[in-house]
Amino acid sequence: MTQKVAIIGGGIVGATVAYYLSQLPGHEQQEVTLYDDGTGQATKAAAGIISPWLSKRRNKQWYELAKRGAELLPQLAREANFDNEVYQQTGTIITRTDEADLDALYLLAEKRRTETAQMGEVLKLSAEEVAQRIPLLTNAQPGVFVSGGARLDGSKYIDALLKIATNRNLTIKQQRVTLNSDGNVMMGSKLERFDRVVVATGAWMKETLKPLDIDVDVRPQKGQLIELSVKNIESHQVMPVLMPEGERDFIPFGNGQLVVGATHEDDATFNLEATGEAKDDLFRSAKQMIADLTIDKVTGMRVGTRGYTSDFAPFFGPIPFFNKVMVAGGLGSSGLTTGPIIGKLLAGSVIFGGQPDWSKFEKDINLYISKK
């Protein structure tokens, strides 16, 4: 018997759910429709770093989730045949200027490497050794190199997965929809009935779930990045991603392309206008790394809206008092790392049913979703 599934939101979670609903055993019985108008989507604006292992977040469940996400991505890249513009294991470098802080970071990396094969090689690098690996830098700092780190282009990731899914059982409708009180999809006045609904609308989730008389702990946060044209160093087309202390993330893509960002703007709500203030801030951060950089090298900006919870932890799973509807939200700035594993878990639950125990990866979902 065919199960009709709706996915509302085509960001990293929604696209991953759609992909796995077209690949996992039982996909032949799934008829999937994805709704998304693309407005403000955080994933399409993101060019992110996959390197959660040296995070000092105290939330152990978040770390387990992010660790699993970082392990899943190279497998997914092979299965979906991603090219290097989508996902590439480049290694990451996290810098510290204080020697004691650098030693502590290195010891943390060594400890976690014993538990996590995906981390690969861990090295403590001098400033000179960092500059050798990223010759764009004129003001390198000492750091810790983790060879298993990677970069992911969010927009290209989505496009690649949805293309695969549409060749099997996915229909995409590029429009914004609402739910009715029964959890079915409303396209204007037209009702579409589904057996399961997955809501992954990020910062817009409050609005999406409003007809169910549900309150959600999600707030919007604006993020902006800049794209720059830099020196093309043919001998270094693959450079590590840099997480410099006190500066914005530094993501070289080779062929003279560089992305720097992102901002975290809590007061901008759903404003998607690229601002001169953000451009100047991000450029100043880039110039700290490349002294001879000039403002005319900025070739573009990306703007998106992330969804955050009050404790910065993601939540996902069936709504406890409305099991037909599953949700995923609050991923924040770690969405490119945690989104794929959340999407796979949700897809498995849609197909196989049951009441999976995801307490290893998240706090009680009732902390974030409640009846009004």
Rank of each mutant, 00 (worst) to 15 (best):
T2V: 15
I8V: 15
G9E: 00
H27W: 13
Q41G: 15
A42M: 12
A46C: 03
G48E: 05
L54Q: 08
R58P: 03
Y63M: 12
L65M: 09
R68L: 07
Q75N: 10
Q75Y: 04
A80H: 06
D83W: 09
T95P: 06
R96K: 15
A104L: 09
T116K: 04
A117P: 07
Q118A: 15
M119N: 04
E121G: 00
L125G: 12
E128D: 15
I134F: 13
N139A: 15
A140L: 06
G143A: 08
D159G: 08
A160I: 00
T166Q: 14
V185H: 03
M186I: 12
G188C: 12
S189C: 03
R193L: 13
A203L: 05
K206A: 11
I226A: 02
E227H: 14
S235M: 10
H236P: 02
L242V: 10
N255D: 13
L258P: 12
V260P: 00
H264D: 02
D266V: 11
A268Q: 15
L272K: 08
R284N: 14
R302C: 01
R302G: 03
S310K: 14
F315A: 12
P318C: 07
I319V: 11
K324F: 05
G329V: 03
S333F: 02
T337Q: 03
P340S: 08
A347R: 12
F352D: 15
G353V: 13
G354N: 09
D357P: 08
K360W: 06
E362A: 14
D364R: 07
N366F: 01
I369H: 03
I369W: 00
